[in-house]
């Protein structure tokens, strides 16, 4: 599973990191620091929850069967 983030439209809610801080890394201002990453095996559900928590709806989950 892969996560794609529209980083330019992150406004620093940091809700993704509140759910999964090891997946969604923030910069010093508290904005998302990464644009995409592969989700480690076993952390898929956490990654999905983090994505859904974004009030800006800028986090996209690419399931393996979509690739």
């Amino acid at each position: 599973m892969k996560i794609l983030i529209d980083k330019a439209n992150c406004v620093g809610n940091a809700r993704c990191a509140a759910i999964a801080e090891t997946l969604y890394l923030l910069d010093d201002d508290g904005y998302i620091a990464v644009e995409e990453f592969e989700v480690p095996a076993g952390m898929e559900q956490l990654a999905r929850r983090g994505a859904k928590a974004c009030p800006e709806r800028v986090i996209q989950v690419i399931e393996d069967d979509q690739e």
Partner: peptide, 8 residues
């Protein structure tokens, strides 16, 4: 102000 009000 961003850093001063960041989660960290």
């Amino acid at each position: 102000l961003q850093k001063a009000f960041s989660p960290k």
